[in-house]
Amino acid sequence: MRYLVDLGWLRSGLSFSFGEYFDPENTAFGVMRVCNDDLVAGGKGFGPHPHSDMEIVTVVLRGQVKHEDNLGNAEVTKEGQVQRMSAGSGIIHAEYNASESEELQFLQLWFMPRARGGAPSYETSSYEPSQMVNHLLPVVSHTGSEQVASINQDLTIYLSRLERGNELSFHQEAGRRVFLFVIEGELEVSGHVMETRDTARIQNEPHLQLAAKEDTKYMLIDLP
């Protein structure tokens, strides 16, 4: 069960210990440290604040997020795009809802880097939503490409929109983990039903069968 935060301008579902919420039994899943499901009111956001030695990924679900940092980056990221920031040796950034009237919804994910103390960096990548249909579409990976953001860790983030009645298989390599997040819909995972905003942490399951009980959008992360 996620910890829910409601500050009026910000509503969050926290999958791991974060901010005021601390559970010593729920601080990480492998290299994964944060999965925040954030809803930000128009014109609101997070003022300048520092990070170091963390890989931070923002997946925009609805609306637009404005990013600014002390490296000189200033960019707006929208649905169909992913933002990746490697904090490295240190970076100061701010994130705001780019709209004064519409809500912003995004997933923010934090991962420990493969190596500490590197040069901080930032990028925004775009993907084609139609390629998610009945397919696991990589949007972030350690190798990266023109449409896949690169990350300083041996992981891959997939997005998928599975149409009702369709199924996909995923093979989990030995010693690796899978984190699942159902964005909307109902997903059956090897006989277990997950509903909207449910998450799952899976280990030692070499074969996952993913079936849509209804049209379903979800995120799958392959982790070391």
Rank of each mutant, 00 (worst) to 15 (best):
residue 93 H to N: 02
residue 58 T to A: 14
residue 79 E to W: 01
residue 144 G to E: 04
residue 76 V to T: 15
residue 158 Y to E: 10
residue 33 R to H: 04
residue 196 T to R: 01
residue 111 F to E: 04
residue 94 A to K: 03
residue 136 L to Q: 02
residue 165 G to M: 02
residue 175 G to D: 07
residue 24 P to C: 07
residue 156 T to S: 11
residue 195 E to A: 14
residue 93 H to Q: 01
residue 212 A to N: 05
residue 22 F to Q: 03
residue 139 V to N: 11
residue 22 F to D: 06
residue 94 A to G: 12
residue 222 D to T: 11
residue 184 E to N: 10
residue 186 E to N: 06
residue 141 S to T: 06
residue 175 G to Y: 03
residue 202 I to Q: 06
residue 164 R to Q: 15
residue 170 F to G: 08
residue 174 A to C: 01
residue 204 N to V: 06
residue 191 G to C: 05
residue 29 F to Q: 04
residue 183 I to E: 10
residue 177 R to Q: 15
residue 88 G to F: 10
residue 33 R to S: 09
residue 117 G to V: 14
residue 145 S to H: 03
residue 191 G to T: 10
residue 9 W to L: 02
residue 149 A to W: 04
residue 166 N to E: 15
residue 141 S to W: 12
residue 42 G to A: 10
residue 64 Q to I: 06
residue 137 L to Y: 07
residue 89 S to I: 08
residue 210 L to K: 06
residue 46 F to T: 12
residue 45 G to C: 08
residue 125 S to K: 02
residue 5 V to D: 06
residue 128 E to F: 06
residue 78 K to F: 01
residue 176 R to L: 05
residue 122 Y to K: 02
residue 156 T to G: 03
residue 143 T to V: 14
residue 192 H to C: 09
residue 58 T to E: 07
residue 38 D to V: 10
residue 121 S to N: 14
residue 70 N to A: 08
residue 21 Y to S: 01
residue 71 L to S: 01
residue 215 D to K: 00
residue 135 H to S: 15
residue 18 F to Y: 12
residue 220 L to S: 01
residue 28 A to R: 08
residue 79 E to M: 03
residue 185 G to F: 07
residue 178 V to N: 12
residue 110 W to E: 11
residue 91 I to K: 05
residue 181 F to N: 13
residue 17 S to W: 04
residue 217 K to L: 08
residue 114 R to V: 00
residue 184 E to L: 04
residue 177 R to V: 09
residue 4 L to Y: 12
residue 114 R to M: 11
residue 109 L to H: 00
residue 147 Q to M: 05
residue 153 Q to C: 08
residue 224 P to V: 11
residue 110 W to C: 06
residue 104 L to K: 09
residue 13 G to K: 01
residue 69 D to W: 08
residue 178 V to K: 00
residue 201 R to D: 04
residue 155 L to G: 11
residue 11 R to H: 09
residue 112 M to L: 12
residue 47 G to S: 13
residue 137 L to W: 09
residue 49 H to G: 12
residue 179 F to V: 03
residue 158 Y to T: 14
residue 46 F to G: 13
residue 114 R to A: 15
residue 159 L to E: 08
residue 197 R to H: 13
residue 171 H to M: 10
residue 144 G to Q: 07
residue 220 L to Y: 07
residue 19 G to S: 09
residue 67 H to C: 11
residue 149 A to D: 03
residue 44 K to T: 05
residue 31 V to E: 03
residue 169 S to W: 01
residue 88 G to A: 00
residue 125 S to W: 00
residue 44 K to N: 07
residue 87 A to I: 07
residue 92 I to S: 01
residue 85 M to R: 01
residue 223 L to W: 07
residue 21 Y to D: 12
residue 46 F to I: 07
residue 85 M to Q: 10
residue 202 I to Y: 05
residue 189 V to S: 04
residue 129 P to A: 02
residue 92 I to K: 10
residue 163 E to Q: 15
residue 198 D to T: 05
residue 9 W to E: 02
residue 128 E to W: 02
residue 173 E to D: 14
residue 136 L to A: 05
residue 54 M to T: 13
residue 156 T to F: 00
residue 197 R to T: 14
residue 184 E to S: 15
residue 193 V to R: 12
residue 153 Q to V: 12
residue 206 P to G: 08
residue 82 V to S: 03
